[in-house]
Design a protein around this nucleic acid. Structure first.
Lengths: 363, 363
DNA sequence: GCACGGGGAGAGAGCGCTCTGGCATCAGGA
DNA sequence: TCCTGATGCCAGAGCGCTCTCTCCCCGTGC
């Protein structure tokens, strides 16, 4: 059982088909420049022997791996409480498998993991990397740049690489926040509070900016920095109610913290949305639909963002295949392309997807 | 940027250290049989050049990949709504990285994906596989067995491979269910209902068995088959209330469906736990803690199960390293080992972890 | 009819590594 | 002193594949 029959080699296929190894290789890799009868013979031999190319041998010479690393930095345990990453992973996986690429998952839990991941990427095991949830002080971008691995970031990074900017995919956080807050204002609410995410992440900072765009001259006591978790949302909500018992709306920076806020509101006897209207951000199904009342929230197409990241990365890897640009990589309808053409391949440095407000019962 | 300096080879390291490639290789791989001064010189050269072994070249000759596939079969969209898999992934990732193994994630979404995964596993890209959430009719086990890849299953598979049984890790579903139901009975409830999971999965079937162990002669109308989702839980709860409006307790086969049931109960004006006591299963934090009221549930250490799966698999891969058995692979305290010694390596065919009841407010 | 060109196939070199012999070198016993 | 047996290192083969280079064969043009 542990010793299965040795796998057939290309040599064996060639012998069976009565051709040279080179011809067999050509057929296996697409069959250009080989005449039909030989192609058929080789194909037949491949099927009969159950030949599968040895990826290690192939990589050794081509220096390609057809594998992409997905790096998720997870300083806290947050990642896995939030379906957000799971959805992105799904989008990524779909796109990668559609292009015969493998997904190597690298989870960063502790400080030394950064070094490990850096070493892995530098080791040239993968052709590229998709990197998530960076904080501003994260050492990872430096390691990646040093490793020289083509990378696409999930969420706008808060720094520049001096070459036209890192390539990333994000949703329009600021505009989404504006839409949410405008909706609250349109409901006649004037004392709108904001529970932020960790402000060292651009998504949280951008949402705060959007909030401020609409709520100019807001009472600073109506803004509490939190951490995207339900528990953090609870705590922030308590603080807000203590500071400004008269608040009549809350915009939480994500659904998870909105769920925490809802619980505290109920606990304190505030009716939602009658007394306090609540809006979240993300629209991650299991959370937003299951709260009481169901959460009005800003929707971003998370899975699509994952898919887009993968597509963008694969496009960059294909530069040998000749100049793909954003235009044919991604359907440009409905999305904004930022900083086009600065970097060497003429690819966009950022792709920003629109958001939509999903009305449920909480606002 | 796309063309970085060529990575240093072992040859370069050897040259710099003034030794042969073979000696350099020995040092890189542990350094046995090389005298100290040479070891130091090689190490120094490695550091100075920033040498990282080329995994492809290494795999080509060793036939090892130091990579493990994690296969998640996800016929519905369920996987990603449920933090369950995320937690297992985390445990697996920790254990794998601790042993310098990579995690290749294979998601199965549609029917043809089975073939793709089967081909990948047969292609010898990974040393082993961890496989999840199999349904009884799943073609995957057959493909895996055919591919001859060492595999550990998450959750007891519902079939046998005729060699002492497939190796798996599971929690004691049946006993957990018994504990839950006994707790409800101990609370004075006599009309206990059960919302099952999909009964083609052993976890759901085992929990039902445990329910029946305690509720002998139960009214069949008190049992509704569901699907582990919140929406399914809602529907099941409605059906139960219609059939038996007098029910006074519900044991849901997982937390997600319990959350759905709670919502319906509230909607129908039943107080929890006063009118109806509710218990879930899994104790996945974000769900169980965030329901209203917080959910009493059966806890299984999901992350530890993941870790155990990885450890078990790595142990099986290490048979060349000389007969590891369950005893030193896993701490045997608190866990049950099933069907020991039937298969060739004397490894356990199943490892079953205990569950504990976590009391919160719902029962 | 002969030179020439182009396309299709094969031979062979290597990708970077591990690992098996085999050859020194040195210690210890006769 | 010579032989034996470790011990430590090197030389070289080869893992399975791709890809260039070369050769051959056939069709074409003058």
């Amino acid at each position: 059982m542990s010793d299965t029959a040795p796998r057939p080699t290309l040599e064996a296929v060639a012998a069976r088909a009565g051709v040279s190894r080179a011809t067999a290789s050509r057929v296996v890799n697409g069959g250009d420049g080989v005449r039909e009868p030989l192609v058929a013979r080789v194909r037949k031999a491949v099927d009969e022997l159950g030949y599968v190319p040895n990826q290690a041998a192939r990589s050794l010479v081509t220096r390609r791996h057809d594998a992409v690393a997905v790096v998720i930095a997870e300083p806290e345990t947050r990642v896995f409480a939030d379906p957000f990453f799971a959805l992105q992973l799904r989008g990524i996986s779909k796109e990668l498998t559609a292009h015969d690429n493998q997904l190597v998952l690298l989870l960063i839990e502790g400080r030394d993991d950064h070094a490990r991941v850096g070493r892995y990427l530098a080791g040239g095991h993968v052709d590229g990397a998709l990197v998530f949830s960076l904080h501003l002080d994260d050492p990872l971008p430096g390691l990646i740049q040093h490793a020289g691995v083509p990378t696409v970031f999930g969420g706008r990074p808060g720094w520049s690489d001096g070459k036209g900017g890192p390539v990333y995919v994000d949703c329009d956080n600021r505009d989404g926040a504006r839409t949410a807050v405008r909706h609250l204002v349109g409901l006649g609410r004037s004392r709108v509070a904001h529970i932020t995410g960790p402000l060292d992440q651009t998504s949280a900072a951008d949402r705060l900016d959007g909030f401020r765009d609409v709520m100019t001259d807001v009472d600073p006591r109506l803004i509490v920095e939190s951490d995207f978790t339900p528990a953090g949302g609870e705590q922030a909500m308590r603080e807000l109610l203590d500071r400004r018992p008269d608040l009549d709306a809350v915009f939480a920076a994500n659904d998870l913290s909105a769920a925490g806020a809802l619980r505290v509101l109920r606990e304190r006897g505030r009716r939602v949305p009658e007394d306090v209207a609540v809006i979240g951000f993300d629209d991650v199904g299991p959370v937003a639909e299951q709260t009481d009342p169901p959460l009005t929230t800003v929707r971003q197409d998370i899975e699509e963002m994952g898919r887009l990241m993968a597509r963008l990365l694969l496009g960059r890897l294909d530069h040998r295949g000749g100049g793909e640009t954003a235009g044919n990589l991604v359907s440009t309808e409905n999305l904004r392309i930022v900083g086009t053409g600065e970097n060497s391949e003429g690819a966009p440095s950022g792709v920003v997807l629109p958001t939509t407000l999903v009305r449920r019962a909480s606002a």
